[in-house]
């Protein structure tokens, strides 16, 4: 039966079939993200051979590897963006995409996220934010809502969540957007834009983890979580006229940044050319 599904599912050609079915729990938002990413690649007609996908550790890291059929680098916890930096500098003509989770990229790896945005290196980051450390059993994350119940905040979370999209926007990225797994078509469009933007791009995807987050926070089923995303999402245009109190507990969705700005690998290569010319070293006719 499984085989039938894969032949009918058009995006299956972008997946490592031998790795399927996925290890994701039923109802996980990871599949939606994988589907949206594959659709974006398909619509842009990007040859997966021109793509390097890098991930860290955690459930969301598995969206990229093993499932996506491209050169994939499944790295250490939190460090995907730093690995991707080396890949991008080495292969500036390839699309380099990082897909990983909130704990991985904004928790343990938060420093790399901020500095890659500041550098404005042409890497697309799809950050799957499910508010929780899912793979390790539902521990509190830097994105967990205030007051939420997790296995390491069994009474309630007394910390405040990091606003990832806003942080990366102020760090200097060229493109920043946030959607949820409820907003699939907008998500695909944003991933496409992010892939085409020259510079650092982040698409934060609020995603459901009914198993580790939802069921401990009065949202047992995936549908309940998606309903919560739908109800609580505020378009950024509307959010601009709302007070912080009104925005408490809301999910601001839309495009935060979309601007042209000098990109790191381009600047790097420009510098190399300038310097080489000035000192007349290197080049074809240099001995």
């Amino acid at each position: 039966m499984a085989k039938q599904i894969y032949t009918k599912y058009e995006m299956a050609r972008y997946l490592r079939k031998e790795a399927l079915p996925t290890a994701l729990c039923p109802g996980c938002g990871g599949g939606t993200v994988l589907n949206a990413f594959a659709n974006a690649i398909d619509q842009l007609k990007i040859d997966p051979r021109d793509l390097v996908v890098v991930s860290g550790i955690g459930c969301s890291a598995w969206i990229a590897s093993p499932y996506f059929l491209a050169d994939t680098l499944h790295t250490t916890h939190g460090r995907a963006i730093a690995f991707a930096t080396g890949v991008k500098v080495g292969l500036p003509d390839k699309k380099v995409v990082v897909i990983s989770g909130d704990g991985d990229l904004a928790g343990i790896g938060g420093n790399h996220l901020i500095h890659a945005a500041r550098r404005n290196i042409d890497i697309t980051v799809i950050l799957v934010n499910n508010f929780i450390y899912g793979m390790t059993g539902g521990q509190v994350a830097p994105t967990t809502p205030f007051g939420a119940i997790t296995t390491t905040t069994p009474y309630r979370n007394i910390e405040h969540p990091l606003k990832i999209a806003e942080t990366v926007a102020s760090a200097g990225a060229s493109y920043v957007a946030r959607w949820t797994t409820f907003h699939v078509y907008q998500l695909i469009e944003s991933i496409k834009k992010a892939l085409n933007v020259k510079g650092f791009s982040l698409v934060e995807v609020i995603s459901q983890c009914p198993v580790q987050f939802g069921r401990r926070n009065r949202m047992k089923t995936p549908a309940e979580m998606l309903r919560w995303f739908s109800k609580n999402s505020i378009p950024i245009s509307k959010a601009k006229n709302m007070s912080p109190e009104e925005l408490e507990g809301k999910i601001v969705i839309g495009e935060f940044v979309n601007k042209e700005k000098p990109e790191f690998t381009e600047e790097l290569n420009k510098l190399i050319d300038e310097v080489a010319q000035y000192y007349s070293l290197g080049g074809e006719d240099a001995d």
Binding site: D71, A82, G86, V87, V89, G90
Partner: peptide
């Protein structure tokens, strides 16, 4: 941004 990132980038570049 730190030494963790340095060796990570080096590994990425080596695979490139």
């Amino acid at each position: 941004e730190d030494e963790i990132g340095s060796i990570a980038a080096v590994i990425g570049a080596s695979w490139a």
